[in-house]
Simulated scan of single mutants.
Amino acid sequence: MSAPAKPRLSAAHRAAMESNPWFMSMPRAQRENLLGAAELIHLRRGAMVFRQGDPVIADGGFFGLAAGTIKISSLRQDGREAILAVLEPGNWFGEITLIDGSPRTHDATALEALDLL
């Protein structure tokens, strides 16, 4: 019995990622390698991609937002939420913890159903 097929990126997913200037500044072969190695993950509205304080996991710390919107936030000392950014398709996030190895500094929450790389 073979493993289930890896979900494929749609033309809309590719177009979203190609709207990012950072991504498009890479050589084509590098972009294709990154997209080819990426796993497409579907999350429902309200799902937490990661929480502040979470450790970085070796095989999944850098994300590309192919569809949906994500809220990046943290809790202030008074317990209220501070929304730092709302990310739209084409954005990449989560790279800082891969660079410095520190736990996550913010929460990342799905504001609607997501497709993540």
Rank of each mutant, 00 (worst) to 15 (best):
N33L: 08
E81M: 00
R28C: 09
G36N: 14
S2A: 14
A29I: 14
A108G: 03
I57N: 11
G36L: 07
W92M: 08
R14I: 09
A37C: 13
S2D: 11
D54M: 01
A16T: 02
M26W: 13
A58V: 09
H106L: 05
I41F: 11
F62I: 11
A66C: 09
N20Y: 08
S74F: 06
R44V: 07
L116W: 02
S73K: 04
S102L: 13
A85R: 05
D59I: 13
M48Y: 11
V56M: 12
S10K: 06
L9Q: 08
D59S: 12
N33I: 13
A16W: 01
K6Y: 14
G53H: 06
R45N: 05
L34R: 08
M1F: 09
R76T: 14
D100W: 13
A11I: 08
L43S: 04
L65M: 04
N91E: 12
E81G: 00
S19V: 03
G68R: 01
V49H: 00
D115A: 13
V86Q: 11
I70K: 02
A82M: 09
A82G: 05
R31S: 05
P89G: 02
P27R: 15
T97H: 13
A12E: 10
M1C: 09
F93M: 07
L117W: 08
T69E: 08
G90D: 03
L116I: 04
E32V: 14
A113V: 00
Q52T: 07
L34Q: 10
F50M: 03
F23P: 01
D78C: 04
A82C: 05
V86E: 15
D107I: 02
N20Q: 08
L34D: 05
L98R: 15
R45P: 00
F50A: 02
V49I: 12
A110M: 02
M48G: 01
P55A: 15
M48F: 11
H42V: 08
A16V: 01
M48K: 09
R45A: 11
A5S: 14
S10I: 03
M26R: 14
F63T: 00
A47M: 03
R80W: 02
E81L: 01
D115Y: 04
R76A: 10
A3D: 13
R28A: 12
G53R: 01
G79D: 05
W22E: 10
H13W: 01
I70P: 00
L98Y: 10
R8L: 15
L40H: 10
V49D: 01
M26E: 10
I41A: 07
R80D: 07
K71R: 09
E88N: 10
F62A: 06
L111F: 08
I57V: 15
L116M: 05
A12W: 05
I57Q: 14
R28S: 10
I41H: 09
L40S: 04
L40V: 15
A37R: 12
M48W: 12
P27L: 08
L114R: 01
N91G: 06
A3V: 15
G46W: 04
N33T: 15
N91W: 09
